[in-house]
Design a protein around this nucleic acid. Sequence first.
DNA 1: AGGATAGGCAAGCGACTACTTGCCTATCAA
DNA 2: TTGATAGGCAAGTAGTCGCTTGCCTATCCT
Lengths: 94, 94
Amino acid sequence: MADVFRALDDETRRLILDELVARNGQTLFEICGVLVSRHGVSSTRQAISQHLAVLEEAGLVVTERRGRSKFHYFDGGPLTAITRRWPATGRDPS
Amino acid sequence: MADVFRALDDETRRLILDELVARNGQTLFEICGVLVSRHGVSSTRQAISQHLAVLEEAGLVVTERRGRSKFHYFDGGPLTAITRRWPATGRDPS
DNA sequence: AGGATAGGCAAGCGACTACTTGCCTATCAA
DNA sequence: TTGATAGGCAAGTAGTCGCTTGCCTATCCT
């Protein structure tokens, strides 16, 4: 569970999740391209690869290898643990 | 929104939220005590105070001062932004 | 086979973070 | 007023994180 929060604590990784939700099953190079074009993220391919590794380790991204390409899919399953641990409602200062 | 993820990316801060959910409106010293007794957290009072400041800056904790005491209340409002940004459902690897 | 494409591994560096230490302010009780 | 309680401020330090750089492996196409 700590991996999920660590993975979410980075703007680039959050943007990657956004792009995977918008278009699922992208490759590393596709993600690099869309991060540069739609957001001003100017990171190297290795940086994005490491981000994807963190997201995959957290279970937020599932990969599927076909040939020399690796497709990345979003998985929001681990997110349910957050609102299951703490109520997402307001406070109660009596 | 980045403050929320940064605040959640720490086990001690997550434990603090747990304890505030279990018993709302605790003071700094009470939180220090319960962190030591119920979990093996051996941090100084200042460390916990800094954690509470991070949680408060993220809006996850709301404080209320009365006299020389400061009471801390959990607020799960910022958590709704998480599942509103990404679907908390499973993947779809077609 | 040879080049091009898609991705992986690992070391090094700068910045940030959690934590401690030391001292200070404010409130309450005797 | 004096002491004790509850908390705040700031500097220093060790460890972690994001990123780059350089090189390597695997797959596809001609």
